[in-house]
């Protein structure tokens, strides 16, 4: 049974179309990368799933529940959590308060404390700075906090928009290690926007390629890199360059 189902959706901002005729299925426990150039509509796809952007056509389901038309807070309750592009940390709140914002929908108070303890165990720096304003953290620390914060809603599916944005390659390695470990431990489903297909291939998983609001290719990330390289030869854009640019 497919966990997340996106059926023929369209997203537009005013008259500007961002996503068109897009259909996508993500299975339970799967790891799917969404790749493609700037403006391809990757973020818009994630926003449509999370309810942050309205769809003008089509429907989205999670385990048979219809998500389309629901407000973001209701979608969060159904088990979807999001780490947005640019992370959107609450800079004036403390690190711990950031983690606790997303616990309002949970009724298992003890498990909440355990989850927080676990996040501090995984990211000791967050534990050390739990009472500090989150805005003072470094970019990499903020990314870890955003991932931890997304976990605190106890989701089934986590969507991460460009986790490597603005981070040094070594930190990006760490971020992906963390995401993969979490996925194994908790049986999470991951939907990740990643511009670098090389990176996606290295981490491993399925990859869909978007361009102009549509899916233009789909397959195993490792196979896709070669095809992407081929496409790059035609379009004059090297995948290496995209890697270094991000």
């Amino acid at each position: 049974m497919s966990k997340l189902g996106v059926f023929d959706i369209a997203v537009r901002y005013g008259k500007v179309p961002a996503v068109n005729d897009l259909t996508l299925h993500v299975d339970e426990g799967e790891r799917v990368f969404v790749s493609g150039p700037n403006g391809a509509g990757k973020s818009s796809l994630l926003k449509a799933i999370s309810g942050a952007a309205a769809t003008s056509h089509g429907r989205i389901e999670l385990d048979g529940d219809l998500l389309t038309g629901r407000p973001p807070e209701a979608i969060a309750r159904l088990g979807i959590s999001m780490v947005p592009e640019g992370r959107d940390i609450f800079g004036s709140l403390t690190v711990e308060e950031n983690l606790r914002v997303g616990t309002g929908l949970r009724r298992d108070a003890e498990a909440v404390e355990e989850d927080i303890a676990e996040i501090y165990a995984n990211f000791p720096i967050l534990g050390e700075r739990r009472a500090a304003a989150a805005g003072a953290l470094s970019g990499g620390q903020q990314q870890m906090l955003a991932i931890g914060r997304a976990l605190m809603t106890n989701p089934k599916l986590i969507m991460v928009d460009e986790p490597s944005l603005g981070l040094a390659p070594k930190i990006v390695d760490q971020v992906y290690d963390t995401l993969c470990t979490l996925q194994e431990d908790r049986g999470l489903t991951l939907l990740i926007v990643e511009q670098s297909s090389l990176r996606a291939a290295r981490v491993g998983g399925r990859m869909v390629l978007m361009r102009g609001g549509r899916i233009v290719g789909e397959g195993n990330a490792a196979d896709m890199v070669d095809r992407d390289a081929l496409a790059a030869a035609y379009f004059g854009q090297s995948p290496e360059k995209t890697e270094t640019a991000t």
Binding site: A52, A76, L93, V101
Partner: peptide, 24 residues
């Protein structure tokens, strides 16, 4: 308080707060 935390989070970034389940 819980509502206080939600208000401060919402004041800073309403959409992000809602994505974390905070009821607008």
């Amino acid at each position: 308080s819980r509502i206080g935390l939600e208000m401060r989070a919402a004041a800073e970034n309403f959409t992000m707060a809602r994505l974390l389940g905070v009821r607008a």
